[in-house]
């Protein structure tokens, strides 16, 4: 069983490596969105510092959203998805592998780049580890929830916009606790509660989302 998990993971990572331009585009999108904000709200450092956690988190969320359609689309077109669904392996397992591969290629780069960008927005340096940690805990939840939406909108006309409408409301709690953690750390109240809640959310999403996603994939390929 674990063999399937690692086989799918390896395959998806390999495919992502071959199409690494896509991954870089997602990352560039994240960077550009964050850099737009000073032009919009002004370069006053105090103001930038105040909005930095929210801006970074919203940008991370949008970057995740925009790349989500890639998660199953290719496999759907070339029939891999149907093969996987027909196989005797539990769907939850390879769904998890695919989501993990997706996160490693889109979430992880964002986590790594975000602290550098935070410096541009003059975020306090003491809050940088919290920023990275909150993104590391939060972006997998976005990927897991987004996977359910991506599975449901597979091959549907106008799927991209529909996907946004479906899952953005579900992203709100992650945004609240993620951005809240950074803000709490920066203001000195401590981010422990926020991070614990994010961790709890991740555990819950890990348990439930793959099931929902597997069911959604079955429905969409029927």
């Amino acid at each position: 069983m674990l063999n399937t998990f690692f086989a799918v993971l390896r395959r998806d990572l390999l495919l992502a490596w071959r199409g690494r331009a896509d991954v870089l585009v997602t990352l560039a999108f994240f960077v550009i969105v964050v850099c737009l904000f000073p032009f919009g709200v002004g370069a006053e450092p105090n103001q930038l510092r105040a909005i930095a956690p929210g801006v970074l988190w919203v940008a991370a969320l949008l970057a995740c959203l925009l790349s989500l359609h890639r998660l199953f689309a290719q496999d759907h077109v070339d029939g891999t998805l149907e093969q996987l669904l027909l196989s005797s392996e539990p769907a939850v397992l390879w769904v998890l592998a695919k989501v993990l591969a997706f996160w490693l290629t889109t979430g992880l780069p964002v986590v790594l780049v975000a602290p550098g960008l935070a410096l541009l927005l003059d975020l306090e340096q003491g809050a940088l580890p919290t920023l990275a940690l909150s993104l590391a805990l939060g972006t997998p939840i976005l990927a897991l929830l987004g996977a359910v939406g991506a599975a449901l909108t597979l091959g549907v006309r106008g799927g991209g916009m529909l996907l946004a409408l479906l899952i953005l409301p579900l992203f709100v709690p992650v945004l609240i606790f993620g951005a809240g953690a950074v803000e709490a750390e920066a203001s000195g109240t401590g981010a422990a509660a926020h991070l614990l809640l994010l961790g709890g959310g991740l555990a819950g999403a890990l348990a439930l989302a793959p099931l929902a996603c597997a069911a959604a994939l079955r429905i969409s390929t029927d």
Binding site: L145, V148, G149, L152, L166, P169, L170, V172, P173, I176, F177, G201, L208, A212, A215, A216, I219, S220, D222
Partner: peptide, 21 residues
């Protein structure tokens, strides 16, 4: 079926959303 899944996912999330907000 797709609608049913998203309705259930939404129902699970409504209390979480309310609490977080």
């Amino acid at each position: 079926r797709a609608g049913a899944i998203i309705a259930l996912v939404g129902a699970v999330n409504v209390p979480i959303i309310y609490f977080s907000v």
